[in-house]
Amino acid sequence: MTSAPESHVTTSDSVVSVKDVQKHYGALHVLKDINLNVTKGEVVVVLGPSGSGKSTLCRAINRLETIDSGEIRVGGDLLPEEGKALATLRAEVGMVFQSFNLFANKTILENVTLGPLKVRGMKKSEADALALKLLARVGVENQKDKLPSQLSGGQQQRVAIARALAMQPKVMLFDEPTSALDPEMINEVLDTMVGLAKEGMTMIVVTHEMGFARKAADRFVFMADGQIVEEATPEEFFTNAKSERAKDFLSKLITN
């Protein structure tokens, strides 16, 4: 495995730290000795073939997946196993999934304000003001009184991003956020994510969207067979991938 640049291995400004993490599903070893450090303002794109452990790693950082051993820290704090402490720390980690997971019976504004009201204890007037600001930021403020079913898939995913941002997280996790979208809707979501990256949001993104990855990522983390095989800048990865697995992955991207 190639060594990460110096700035990536220091921990003083670490937002997410994954150390010696192992995860099994029965006999299947899905995460093998994972070590990863993500610093404040960094955009890390996780790449790799299907079944490489990318989504499992992403979900483990929010403890939607448990781990067998190792440790995960967010903002220097060890990820708790359960209870109120876990809920509190989860509030620091925004998550955007393949599916939008919006509440169908609540308006767009209500979907975005729910977390700040229930978890952060924010006043309704403050939560509404924050939600409107974030909906404007992702370009759907004029949809605030509609139900999710009245929006396109791309609009719903942008609402999901606004909802995650409303918790004012330390890091945003994206797990294939455009894979459920029609092709014409993908760019509007990716443009929103590029905007977040430019604003300095710390992000870990699992994606196959190479255009976005090349434009927004500070670092690529390439996974295969449950392991981090290689880490590099986008330019280094595309022009001078070190591992045979990464070269094979890139050749299939180019062929397809």
Rank of each mutant, 00 (worst) to 15 (best):
S3N: 13
A4C: 11
H8Q: 15
V18T: 00
Y25M: 10
G26V: 08
G26R: 05
A27I: 10
K32Q: 14
K32C: 10
K32I: 09
N37P: 07
K40D: 09
G41F: 06
V43H: 00
V43N: 02
V43G: 03
V44D: 00
V44P: 03
V45T: 15
V46C: 02
P49L: 09
S50K: 10
S50I: 05
S50N: 12
S52Y: 01
L57W: 02
L64E: 03
R73G: 01
G75D: 06
G76D: 04
E81K: 14
E82G: 06
K84H: 13
L86E: 06
A87M: 15
T88H: 13
T88D: 15
R90D: 09
A91L: 12
A91K: 14
G94F: 10
V96W: 05
S99N: 14
F103V: 08
K106I: 06
T107K: 02
T107H: 08
L109G: 01
E110A: 11
N111L: 00
N111H: 01
G115T: 10
P116R: 02
K118C: 05
R120N: 15
K123V: 05
K124F: 06
E126T: 05
D128S: 06
D128K: 12
A129K: 00
E141H: 09
Q143I: 02
Q143A: 08
K144E: 03
K146Y: 12
P148W: 02
Q155W: 00
R158L: 01
A162I: 09
R163Q: 02
R163T: 03
M167H: 08
Q168C: 07
V171D: 01
M172T: 10
F174C: 12
E176K: 11
S179F: 13
L181C: 13
D182F: 00
M185G: 06
I186R: 14
N187L: 14
L190C: 11
M193D: 11
M193K: 12
V194Y: 13
G195E: 09
G195L: 08
G195W: 10
V206D: 09
R214P: 07
A216K: 11
D218I: 01
F220N: 05
V221M: 09
F222I: 10
F222R: 06
A224V: 08
D225H: 05
Q227H: 00
Q227C: 11
I228F: 06
E231H: 02
T233E: 04
E235H: 01
F237Q: 04
N240T: 10
K242T: 10
E244Q: 14
R245T: 12
K247Y: 01
F249E: 01
L253A: 01
